[in-house]
Amino acid sequence: MSRRTVEPVQVVKQRRDAALRALAEGVPYIRFMGIVFDRRGDELTAVLPFRDENIGNPFLPAIHGGVTAAFLEVTAIVTLSYQWLWEDVENGVLDPEEMVDGNLPRLPKTIDFTVDYLRSGLPRDAYARARVTRSGRRYASVQVEAWQDNRDRPIAHATAHFLMPRSDK
């Protein structure tokens, strides 16, 4: 691999944002939930804007546990996929513009997903970050946590295992 000359920052950002856009906006369910991603370098923060449809208990009111679980799962898959594809995107093996046009590589599949509910989700925006604790050739483990107003008071966390797509590289 020959070292590239220094790229203009806009080119780098455009490439990385396009890859992220393909992974998140390309999936109908992520659009349906209104989940968006904030990127700082390779660190992703998922944002779930509050909407009335997210309510699970109208009397409290609180966000539906299924919404929280789905939010954590989406964050885990997108973070894992983004990290997994990062090198190929950076090396030009994958063209992010082609990915945006729907030509996505095969993505990890969820094997299992365990969510702990720590506090009830309030009717306001929620945030989540995932950490890939192991990314092997076939299996990956991911930990993911969601919070609202206070980063130190998570509303839920989850552990998930994924089956990685067979690599044709």
């Binding site: 679980a69 789905a70 799962e73 989406v74």
Partner: peptide
């Protein structure tokens, strides 16, 4: 269908 919807 996305796993998240099945979870819900």
């Amino acid at each position: 269908i996305h796993g998240g919807a099945v979870s819900a």
